[in-house]
Amino acid sequence: MTLPRQRGLTEQTADAAIDTACRMLRLRLRLRLRLRLRLPSIRNEFADIADRAVKDQMTYRGFLAELLMAECDDRARRRSERRIKAAGFPREKSLRTFDFGANPNLDPATIHTLASCEWIKKGQPLCLIGDSGTGKSHMLIALGAEAVMKGYRVRYTLATKLVNELVEAADEKQLNKTIARYGRVDLLCIDELGYMELDRHGAELLFQVLTEREEKNSVAIASNESFGGWTKTFTDPRLCAAIVDRLTFNGTITETGTDSYRLSSTRARAEQPAKAG
């Protein structure tokens, strides 16, 4: 949470800001045996804020509010950075950098509604279905990043990597612990589901993760196969049907289409020099 910043705070606004900042900076004494109060932003920015307070003729309340808000803002930024790192995104993607004009199958209004993260709050699933190059992974990572910025715990993984981790955990008798770890995050993003066939054991382990999260925490997947083609990945028809049910019940299904916007963009760039000549 970032506190609102403005110059010339009224005494009442300053009091409210100070109260909010102090609540945000309050240490959780019940969880800590040693009390250590670190305020790096106050330490680093104190002089600049003090000089600005003199220049702007701030009241004592206004100066204190500015000082505490600087610490809160910096803590919020560092917390987001830690969550982004913990999410394990393979690259940086955002909704801002996605070219909706190149893929008319994706409705900007729908995507920005998803970016509000209400579906995560409700523990609902999201399925992004479409061919390679249509923006599935971009959307998956970008929506995951939006969730991180709103304070949700997110984890990104490839489907095959997740299954391999579960198989290794089962061999090492750590399966319950691993499933519980994946069950705790608010949003689990599974990319490239449907690219490779999974044996029955691997599919069953993946099903356990989905069952652990069902109607509690959200799962978002990206797949290049329509649900009818998932029998290539999950060869047991009953298990396949159960997995589809877990990933679609009360969820959102967004089809990204069949035309690669990456290929279209490459062709457009290649044609530009030819037209210029």
Results as ranks from 00 to 15, higher is better:
A65V: 04
R34H: 13
L198F: 14
R155Q: 08
T248I: 08
I42G: 06
C72N: 08
P90D: 05
S94E: 03
Y152V: 06
C22V: 13
A115W: 03
A147E: 02
A170Y: 10
T20S: 15
R82V: 10
R38A: 13
Y152T: 09
T266P: 00
T13Y: 06
A47N: 13
R91D: 12
T178I: 11
Q124P: 06
T59P: 02
L3P: 02
A241M: 03
E214A: 12
R52A: 09
F63P: 07
T134F: 00
Q272P: 00
D56H: 12
I84C: 11
R213S: 05
R78N: 12
E172C: 07
A220D: 10
R262L: 04
P237I: 09
E214N: 12
I120F: 00
R23W: 05
T20Y: 05
H138N: 07
T178P: 05
D259M: 15
D171H: 14
A145C: 10
L3W: 02
C22H: 09
D51E: 13
S41H: 15
H138C: 04
M58V: 03
I129Y: 01
C117F: 01
G277N: 14
M69V: 11
Q124Y: 15
R36M: 01
A53W: 02
N164F: 00
L210R: 07
S265I: 02
H112T: 05
K93Q: 14
L33N: 15
K216H: 15
A220E: 10
T59C: 01
S223Q: 05
G135T: 06
C117R: 03
L9E: 00
D236E: 14
A14L: 01
I190P: 08
G229I: 09
D186R: 03
P125Y: 08
W119H: 13
L126W: 03
L206H: 04
S260C: 04
R75P: 11
A47M: 12
